[in-house]
Design a protein around this nucleic acid. Structure first.
Lengths: 356, 356
DNA sequence: TTGAAAGCGCTAACAC
DNA sequence: GTGTTAGCGCTTTCAA
């Protein structure tokens, strides 16, 4: 039976129909100038008439490129990563690149991804977001692949980095400015993010404390689960100590809302008796009136794609760069800056662990 | 200069080195049984030694398949779509499929995506999430591509559908059960979601109202922007009418928190004097103590990939199905069900439009 | 069982 | 300018 499956038109048929060689058709397609106007017009017409669409795969095989870029990202757990991906995506659609996205929810997933060799040969380059270098370094199949990292650093690859130290420095200093003398940094567990992130945040926090002349006992360093529950129970534990901190710097907004909840439940007035600052400044922070460290995630994403495009084009030329993006503080109410009107409605909208 | 660019080992080199034909190597690779044990072992050893990795592109060209699946999804704006994508992704990594993800933030983006013919030849099948059929129907390049739709329906494609009518029926009935006599349905603008979604939600809402014997004047139907601001201003407008609704059914959780805010600002006690129910039951709903209609988004996503895999394998065999997923009601506090303890902290954590 | 050879649809180098 | 041809690396008949 024929006719049910319209076989795809090939370049050869176009050439035959137009009475030219395949090379000419190829030249017309690639916009090469070395084609006569009449010939070009004729070929175009035939292409149109036959509904010819060049095969990307064949082109890939012949040219050795794919027109696709791979992204390895733990984005499904966090709005921040999603925003980075949006930046990548937006730029990619401008540059006519397709995105092959690989989510990473566990170390096993990454391992099997690399083992399956899924990335090689299918993409022209790779963007790696927030993966611990140890997990990915030295994989042979990635050796000759142009790569760009975001919020992590791999040997030999351009890195797009937010200045985490500056982020916590900003927020810590802000709370100190509000008069807080005992401060806590509630960070996240390391996995899956590169541990330098945590180290840097700590650095900024400690620097601000040191500059303010705070004593060692006035600085609490904790890590907690990356969730409202994590922030909630971590803060609760601190609040039960004899002299609890009054200023809380968090590694995320979800943790911050948990802390806000704990503070409110402990009967402390949020904004005056205690202050909380989140991290990443995701939409949730806005809804919660949480002051937060803003990271230009979208911009970092599009920068990543741009750098990668350049790396692919220039191939092995051009040394890897470190492109640093600077955080800013989005001031809302949880830090104590708000007037009464801004304070309406909160603290707290998080019911606590029972609801989970 | 040589040695700097380790050329990839090809099947031919393996064959030569192993003293066999390329056909045999190919058979070993594909696990074909028609290979002698000794030959197979020998070939495997050479493959190992040379570090040979078959080229997926060459294979694609020869076999006519890509091992990738395309996803068209407006996911970056909404947690609900992200959850669908997670379901797809999770199943995909199990089945060894790569995902080529195309975000869709505007009609133009979709048009250019289709025009660029990006999808054809690069994927074995396509999953279309929540796109209006009118926007995509009849695109020639998609004609012979196996397709599965999620939360939308395309002629000839299997559809994974949440029962939206049942969703609003559930929530509306719940509010009626709480004694509310005047109800509002605040839905979303059509684009980019298929308009049947809105029609169905309206259907369920009206059915519940009818069954409860509510008069036409007691049912307000509105659409508002898909944001807290949208819900906020829509509800504000209603609250200024002589006899405002007391029960609010929303098409999303973000809108619901805007409505909650408006209710609180109007001095009405949330849960007793007025009740609000959201939609999708995203994490935000939990933080806001918002009762919400839960849609099994993750499950729908993985079902989509499963159906697509089947469609690709069975090719044109098997009629398109409609697979319906049923919503449930996640009861929290905003509907009036909560005890006093659960009500702590809200209403409202949303500062209103000024913050945006 | 296995080798040889003919494609898959395109690009690019080379002649005319 | 344009046609011809030789690959890109693999799968898959078709003989043997």
């Amino acid at each position: 039976v024929q006719g049910s499956q319209t076989r795809n038109v090939t370049i050869r048929e176009v050439a035959r129909e137009a009475g030219v060689g395949v090379g000419t058709v190829s030249r017309v397609l690639s916009g090469s100038s070395k084609v006569g106007d009449a010939t070009r017009a004729n070929v175009m017409k035939v292409i149109e008439r036959l509904g010819y669409r060049p095969s990307r795969i064949a082109r890939s095989l012949a040219k050795g490129t794919t027109g696709a870029i791979g992204v390895v990202i733990p984005f499904f757990t966090q709005h921040y990563f999603l925003e980075i991906l949006r930046g990548i995506q937006t730029k990619a659609s401008e540059s006519d690149y397709s995105l092959v996205v690989h989510n990473m929810e566990s170390p096993e997933q990454l391992k099997s991804l690399l083992a399956a060799d899924v990335l090689r040969e299918r993409v022209d380059g790779l963007i790696v977001v927030a993966i611990d270098p140890a997990d990915i370094e030295g994989v042979p199949s990635l050796a000759s692949l142009p790569m760009v990292c975001v919020d992590t650093e791999l040997r030999g690859a351009t890195a797009i980095l937010p200045d985490h130290a500056a982020g916590t420095y900003l927020s810590t200093k802000h709370l100190i400015g509000h008069g807080h003398k005992r401060l806590a940094l509630i960070d996240r567990p390391q996995y899956p993010v590169s541990n330098t992130t945590i180290a840097l945040r700590r650095l900024g926090f400690l620097r601000a404390c040191r500059e303010a002349g705070l004593g060692d006992d006035d600085q609490v360093l904790e890590t907690a689960a990356y969730s409202p529950e994590g922030g909630y129970s971590s803060a609760n534990a601190m609040l039960e100590t004899p002299e609890p901190p009054t200023g809380f710097i968090c590694a995320s907004d979800v943790q911050a809302i948990g802390v806000m909840r704990a503070v409110a439940e402990a009967g402390r007035s949020l904004g005056t008796e205690a202050a909380v600052i989140g991290y990443h400044d995701v939409d949730l922070a806005q809804y919660a009136c949480a002051t937060s460290v803003h990271l230009p995630a979208f911009e970092m994403g599009s920068q990543a794609l741009e750098s990668l495009t350049k790396a692919i084009a220039g191939s092995s030329e051009g040394a890897p760069e470190r492109i640093v993006f600077h955080p800013s503080l989005t001031v809302r109410a949880s830090c104590g800056c708000a007037g009464e009107s801004r304070l309406f409605g909160w603290p707290g909208f998080y019911t606590g662990p029972k609801d989970a």
